[in-house]
C-alpha cells in the first residue's frame, strides 16, 4: 500500500511539475500571445480595448494569480481559450482527439505486431545470416525520418503501384498508410527490447530444462520465453508513448489528417500558446498515467517483483 501511495504521489508531483514547466515556458515569459495577436496596428485597437481583451483572457493579473487560475481551471477541465479562434481549448482538443486516438491506437497495435513478428522471426530463423539481418532492422527503423517514410509510402503505394487512392480514399483506405508510417518507428525500440529479453530469458537454466524435456523451439518461445520477455517490453511503454505522440503530429501533417497533430501545428503557426500548453499538459498527463499503470501492474504480473516491493 505504501508503495502504491508513494508511486501515485510522485506521479502527481511530476504532473504538477510538467504543468508548471509548460506554464513558465508558454505563459510566464515575456511576449504573451494576446499581445502578439492584438497589438497588431492593422487591427486598429485602442489601448483600452487591448486592456479589456487582456483582462478577458486573464493576462492582466499577477503571475501567481494567473498560475493559480490556470491550475484550478485545468483541474476542473477548463483549459482556457484559444487566442487564434477564441474557442474553448477543451472543445478544440475534444474535436481532434477521436481521430488521433484512432490513428495512434491502430499504429500502436500494428507496431506491437510488427515488433513481435520481427523478434520471433529473428529468434527462430534457421539461418544465422537471416537472423543478423532481422536483428539489424530495428536500428534501421530508428534512423528513418517518420515524415520521409510517409512520403515514400505514398509514392510507392499510391503513385507507383496505384493500390491506395490519394483522392477521396475510403475511411479504411485512408488509414492504412498513416498507421504503417506510425508503426515502423514505434516497433523498433519494442523489437529491440523484446529481442534482448528473449536472449536473456533463453540463457536461464529453466529454458535448458524445458528444452531437454523435448520442447520445440516455437513452443518454448511462446509458452516460456515470451511470458517472461513481455514485462521488459512493457516498461518502455512511456518512451513509446512519447514517440507515438510525436509521430502522430508528423503523420497527420504528411497525410493531411485532422487531429491533435494538426491542432499542434496550427497552434504553432498562429502563436496560439493556450492550445499548445493544453496539448503539452495532456500529453504529460497521459505519459504519467501510463508509467504509473506499468509500475503498478508489474508486480501483479511478475511475482518476483512483488516480494521486493513488499520488502
Amino acid at each position: 500500500m505504501t508503495y502504491v501511495a508513494s508511486r501515485v504521489l510522485s506521479s502527481l508531483g511530476v504532473l504538477l511539475g510538467a504543468f508548471t514547466l509548460a506554464f513558465v515556458l508558454l505563459q510566464a515569459l515575456p511576449g504573451d500571445a494576446v499581445m502578439i495577436r492584438f497589438e497588431n496596428p492593422e487591427l486598429g485597437l485602442t489601448a483600452e480595448q487591448i486592456a479589456a481583451i487582456r483582462e478577458s483572457y486573464g493576462a492582466d493579473s499577477g503571475l501567481l494569480a494567473e498560475y493559480w487560475h490556470a491550475l484550478s481551471g485545468a483541474l476542473g477541465g477548463d483549459l482556457g481559450y484559444s487566442v487564434a479562434s477564441g474557442a474553448p481549448v477543451r472543445v478544440l482538443v475534444g474535436e481532434a482527439l477521436g481521430s488521433t486516438l484512432l490513428l495512434a491506437g491502430l499504429g500502436f497495435v500494428a507496431a506491437v505486431l510488427l515488433a513481435g513478428l520481427l523478434a520471433f522471426a529473428a529468434s527462430l530463423s534457421p539461418f544465422s545470416w537471416l537472423a543478423t539481418l532481422l536483428r539489424s532492422l530495428p536500428s534501421l527503423f530508428i534512423s528513418v525520418p517518420v515524415f520521409w517514410l510517409g512520403i515514400v509510402l505514398i509514392q510507392l503505394f499510391s503513385f507507383r503501384l496505384g493500390w491506395i487512392s490519394v483522392i477521396r480514399p475510403g475511411p479504411v483506405e485512408a488509414l492504412i498508410l498513416p498507421v504503417l508510417t506510425l508503426a515502423v518507428p514505434i516497433s523498433a525500440p519494442l523489437a529491440q527490447v523484446l529481442l534482448r529479453a528473449i536472449d536473456d530469458v533463453r540463457a536461464q537454466p529453466f529454458v535448458a530444462v524445458v528444452r531437454a524435456k523435448g520442447a520445440s523451439e516455437p513452443w518454448l518461445l511462446v509458452r516460456n520465453v515470451l511470458r517472461n520477455a513481455a514485462l521488459p517490453a512493457m516498461t518502455i511503454a512511456g518512451v513509446l508513448l512519447g514517440e507515438l505522440i510525436g509521430g502522430a503530429v508528423v503523420t497527420e501533417t504528411v497525410f493531411a489528417r485532422f487531429g491533435i497533430g494538426r491542432l499542434t501545428a496550427d497552434a504553432l503557426n498562429a502563436q496560439d500558446t493556450p492550445v499548445l500548453q493544453a496539448i503539452v499538459i495532456i500529453a504529460a498527463a497521459v505519459f504519467v498515467v501510463v508509467n504509473l499503470a506499468v509500475d503498478l501492474l508489474a508486480p501483479v504480473l511478475d511475482p518476483r517483483l512483488r516480494r521486493r516491493v513488499q520488502a
Binding site: G13, V14, L15, G17, A18, T20, L21, A22, L25, L26, L29, G238, L241, G242, E243, I245, G246, V249, V250, T264, A267, L268, Q271, T273, L276, Q277, I279, V280, A283, A284, F287, V288
Partner: peptide, 22 residues
C-alpha cells in the same frame, strides 16, 4: 532528478515545439 522526470514526461517533439513557439 524530479526536474529531469518532468522533462522526460513531455514528449520530445512537443517540448521542442514549446521552445520554438517561445
Amino acid at each position: 532528478m524530479r526536474v529531469v522526470d518532468v522533462l522526460l514526461s513531455i514528449p520530445g517533439l512537443l517540448l521542442s515545439l514549446s521552445v520554438i513557439i517561445l
